[in-house]
Write a protein that binds this DNA or RNA. Structure first.
Length: 482
RNA sequence: UCCCGAAUAGCUCAGUUGGUUAGAGCAUCUGACUGUUAAUCAGAGGGUCUCUGGUUCAAGUCCAGAUUCGGGAGCCA
């Protein structure tokens, strides 16, 4: 058997000495012709492998370069040096894979995130990205754990879909037709009946509508999968391909929905703090270092771990849209005309408004409910007893400091007549959505759900500031490497 | 898509009112040293100044366009 190695994380944690081990990993640095800092991705902490003088010939020593992979058998001993408690004194050392130091892009020095983005295939070998992607892994696992513990059914909604009625965003077309010469109808339009699926299809922009079908049978489901938006968005918080978590719960109203979303977010953060404290500490220090280079006024009040603790220990602020607008109108920022966009009941709040509420006014995550119907999707439940001309829906957005909208959700319109009326008003073809309307025709129940952008959650937990740095291989406009 | 900014060595960056042979730190290589922590010390190599066009006796430097990247906005998760 080849793999009898011990993982570096376990070896460093046990602090046991006197026994022989096999370790394998990649060389981070080789100092003094004697000390190898070895990393295997299990932790940011390197294992110091000591190569005593005379153990290796000149030629082998030359092959111990940054990035090279090695297998070492040796004794775990107490370290004489200061940086670590234990180290491995090598008895045999085998180079598994060479790494030409002149060509290997990662140098034993600090690199910019922009540079590493171009070397996305190698950036996992750095401390920052090691921590980020170990955290991403933990958070993904915690997502499943949370819903599993609550008895939700994990439902895989389709990635290729013919449903285009949701209007959540521009879609990527899926076709096998030759794009330079597609079959055409008599009127010149493309004849999709000859396409692979016999109709026009796209990559999904949301699994919600299919998720509702599941909730109408299992009571509570969630999806966790890739989502695609062909928007030409060039920001630090948008991706063309991202992962979204969408729970959908029958017999739940907007209140239950908010409670679940808040509990969910806090659960994920708590899980990360319990299982990845080392990585959080590394990112906390990294962020603190970054902050030092900023002007004092732009520095954040909290460190990363401080921020996470605060979010876990405190309830999210809950306000209605109408209250939010009033807070903005009463704000010094509004009175001093600091906002670029005007504030009035009915507006779709701009990010400057959301940031004011979250970062200046409440200084904590905020859940906003009861948005005007006119600016929200067709499936959101119309609130009863609204003031004349101020029809609202049972929608809720969770706004997080530094990220903005991290969750968007609503109680769904379960009343067939009201839903059909709304769809007609918004020119959504009822015939094509017949399968969706069946949930309201046969045993309709009050239900609710939300969508959480996984990468935005990872951004929040890691303290990274660009969404391209929290997904292994980012897909953004004009960029599809690897 | 819009606004702003940037592009010079492997990386991070200097580069004066346009003027001879474009610099530094780190990395790399060579040598020294050998209980080092991004080791240290000495030396060496390394450049189509993003691309295209223009102005000029002369362009890394000025102008126009393109490309890519970064920050912000919109759209949203």
């Amino acid at each position: 058997m080849f793999n009898t190695r011990v993982k570096i994380k376990e070896l460093l944690a046990s602090e046991q000495t006197g026994h022989e081990v096999t370790v394998m990993g990649w060389i981070r640095t080789f100092r003094n012709n004697q000390f190898i800092a070895l990393n295997d991705g299990s932790t940011n902490n390197n294992l110091q492998v000591v190569v005593e003088l005379g153990l290796l010939d000149e030629a082998t020593l030359k092959r111990l370069t940054t990035g090279a992979s090695i297998k070492v058998i040796g004794e775990v001993v107490a370290s004489l040096g200061k940086g670590q408690k234990v180290e491995v004194k090598a008895k045999t050392l085998e180079v598994l894979g060479d790494s030409d130091a002149e060509k290997y892009p990662l140098q034993p020095k600090k690199h910019s995130l922009e540079f590493l983005r171009e070397k996305a295939h190698l950036r996992f070998r750095t401390n920052t990205f090691g921590s980020v992607f170990r955290l991403r892994n933990s958070l993904a696992f915690a997502v499943h754990k949370f819903f599993n513990e609550k008895g939700f059914v994990y439902l895989n909604t389709p990635i290729i879909t013919s449903s285009d009625a949701e209007g959540a965003g521009e879609m990527f077309r899926v076709t096998t037709l030759p794009f330079d010469n597609p079959p055409r109808n008599e009127d010149g339009s493309v004849n999709y009946t000859e396409d692979f699926f016999g109709k026009s299809t796209n990559l999904t922009v949301s699994g919600q509508l299919e998720g509702e079908l599941g909730a109408m049978a299992f009571s509570e489901i969630y999806t966790f999968g890739p989502t695609f938006r062909a928007e030409n968005s060039n920001t630090t918080r948008h991706l063309a391909e991202f992962w979204m978590i969408e729970p959908e719960m029958a017999f739940n109203d907007i209140e239950d929905n908010m409670n679940l979303a808040e509990e969910f977010i806090q659960y994920l953060i708590r899980y990360a703090m319990e299982h990845n404290m080392e990585d959080l500490e590394f990112l906390d220090a990294r962020l603190a270092d970054e902050e030092k280079s900023k002007p004092v006024a732009e520095r954040s009040e909290f460190g990363l771990i401080e921020k996470l603790k605060f979010v876990v220990d405190n309830q999210f602020e809950r306000i209605t849209y109408t209250e939010a607008i009033q807070i903005l109108l009463d704000s010094p920022a509004y009175k001093k005309k600091k906002f670029k966009y005007d504030v009035a009941w009915g507006i779709d709040m701009q990010s400057e408004h959301e940031r004011y509420l979250v970062e200046k006014h409440f200084k904590k995550p905020v859940i906003v409910t009861g948005y005007p119907a006119a600016i929200k999707a067709f499936y959101m439940r119309l609130n009863d007893n609204c003031e004349e001309g101020k029809q609202t829906v049972a929608a809720m957005d969770i706004l997080a400091p530094g990220i903005g909208e991290i969750v968007g959700g609503s109680q769904r319109e379960e009343r067939l007549d009201k839903l059909e009326k709304r769809m007609n008003e918004m020119h959504i073809p009822l015939e094509e959505m017949s399968w969706y309307l069946d949930t309201r025709r046969f045993g309709s129940v009050p239900h609710a759900g939300f969508g959480l952008g996984f990468e935005r959650m990872v951004l929040f937990v890691t303290g990274m500031t660009n969404i391209r740095d929290v997904i292994p291989f980012a897909r953004t406009p004009k960029n599809c490497e690897f």
